[in-house]
Design a protein around this nucleic acid. Structure first.
Lengths: 152, 152
DNA sequence: TAAATGTCTACAGTGTTTATCGTGTATAGG
DNA sequence: CCTATACACGATAAACACTGTAGACATTTA
């Protein structure tokens, strides 16, 4: 299960993606994004900060500030976002490449049967999810400009 | 990430599977399973009980009691075990068939873009993991009878 | 009947999730 | 230069999940 936080992050990116597709896109304030996506504003602050630190969106401060996409939707990876917000995707810590951790109780990784089997499943899964981008989500929508519910 | 509990359950099933493959298989006590798999005994109690209630293993009480596999390893589904121990596999509650739950904040499931995209990923993933059985894990091991570490 | 074994309920420590609040900092516009 | 507007950041807290531990009970067999 993905967390609520991840859902909020996705909704926010959908809002920003829809905005970026307009004729004259504006930077959107947290308040505006919160309103359009239906997420708690103060919580969204933290989420957008994380997404910004991941280099996916840009923020400008002060009057007329706000957030906007930093990359094209096709370059924004859903699996990267998942890793940023929810942490490692791998089913076992010893299978994660970026967040590798030895299983405490494991005496020999090379012969571990649990690791071996989950590794195969995981590689197949990675191929699928690693290819997914924000553009796929944006395109998958029916009508673009319904306030929300469509953007969910 | 799968939980520690799920890892313990798998280790226990590997122990029982290895035992069942022997010439003269015995039922194994919780204590023995705990020792062979390296899991805390009192915690393992709960886990084995859940697995038993799921119909995967059998228990006999009293003196010379213990646990043994109730089905053949090829009939024991890893994904079913995952659902039993760790709960729904689906990335969203609205995508789980057995544990379906409407997302609280969702206004229209049919047009939800998050749901739509994750559904595709999920179906592909299900095909992979639903085909996995305990036998796959047992076979994937190198030498069968190394005390543990191989059984992990 | 006693010893060995599984069953069941309760509880507790720790960490994660889901937020909210207060305050600090940058910027545009007047 | 001032101030309103916006993002930035750290602290806190309630609810829940995870990882066990403990005690009492039920069942079986020798």
């Amino acid at each position: 299960m993905i967390t609520q936080k991840m859902k909020y992050a996705l909704k926010a990116l959908l809002v920003l993606g829809d905005e970026a597709a307009k004729d004259q896109p504006h930077a959107l304030t947290i308040e505006e994004i919160a309103k359009r996506s239906g997420t708690p504003k103060r919580f969204l602050e933290h989420i957008l900060l994380e997404v910004r630190n991941a280099g996916v969106i840009a923020s400008t401060r002060g009057r007329s500030g706000g957030y906007s996409l930093l990359k094209r939707p096709a370059e924004i990876s859903i699996s990267e976002l998942l890793r940023t917000i929810d942490g490692p995707i791998a089913p076992l810590p010893c299978l994660s490449r970026r967040a590798y951790q030895r299983c405490e109780d494991c005496t020999d990784e090379a012969t571990c049967r649990i690791r071996k089997v989950f590794a195969e499943v995981f590689w197949s899964y990675l191929v699928i999810i690693d290819s997914l981008t924000l553009e796929d989500m944006l395109r998958s929508g029916a009508v673009a400009d319904q306030v929300m519910g469509a953007a969910q």
